[in-house]
């Protein structure tokens, strides 16, 4: 099943109402710098293409770029790292979002039950910890709020390390947006991973959409 590029994935989830980190694409180092200037530093730069699903594993994500020189150098490195099998590639520059808490949210289609929305704890241990829960789409608002309540580590959603509690209504908005995406039968799955909690607000800093 084909996966869309991060840029194409971001457009889909953003249209549905997911809050994503501010971003734009750039064809080369010069325009990456312009994007960085307009977004404001620090930024993240990534190499983005339809055939590139797991950017982190290939070192195609550069975090915390805090000067124009760093942006330019990272952009040049990333474009040089492209392989022929990656096909058409571009740069994706986005605002660097930081927060101590990472969640994961997504959409899958299950053989038995059809489209299901997931919410879980994110980060590098997400799959090992597997504190995740599901609801069948379409979700009612109460289903979304119940789904949030189902996470085991509720204390992570409260005030945490000087950061305010997670805005449950905003998180429910994200889950409702995933539920709306499920209405498109062409979308097989969605990952919002991670969903960084920035000052209580969940913000998707990466998106991956898989289509039929």
């Amino acid at each position: 099943m084909p996966t869309l590029s991060e840029a194409a994935s971001r457009r889909i989830v953003e249209d549905a109402g997911v809050a994503v980190s501010p971003w734009a694409t750039a064809a080369d180092a010069g325009s990456a710098k312009e994007v960085a200037a307009s977004l404001g530093l620090p930024v993240v730069a990534k190499l983005c293409g339809g055939a590139i699903a797991h950017k982190t594993e290939r070192g195609l994500v550069r975090l915390g770029l805090s000067s124009q020189d760093e942006v330019g150098a990272a952009a040049a490195d990333l474009l040089a790292a492209a392989r022929p099998e990656d096909g058409d590639v571009e740069l994706l520059v986005s605002t660097m979002v930081s927060g101590n808490r990472e969640l994961i949210a997504g959409l899958v289609r299950n053989e038995q039950f059809g489209p299901c929305v997931m919410l879980g704890l994110g980060g590098i241990l997400a799959e090992a910890v597997a504190d995740v829960a599901f609801r069948l789409a379409p979700l009612e608002r109460d289903d979304a709020l119940d789904l949030i309540d189902d996470l085991g580590a509720q204390f992570l959603l409260d005030e945490f390390r000087g950061e305010p509690a997670v805005d449950r209504e905003a998180l429910a908005d994200t889950l409702m947006a995933l539920s709306r995406i499920a209405e498109d039968p062409e979308v097989l799955s969605v990952d919002l991973n991670p969903l960084i909690v920035d000052d209580g607000q969940p913000v998707a800093v990466d998106a991956l959409v898989e289509t039929a």
Partner: peptide
């Protein structure tokens, strides 16, 4: 292909369905 997919075990989906 997705992390969500790899976390979507039958039991977790059933459990979510049951609660819903």
């Amino acid at each position: 292909a997705s992390h969500t997919g790899s976390l979507a075990s039958d039991d977790r989906i059933f459990d979510g369905m049951a609660r819903q």
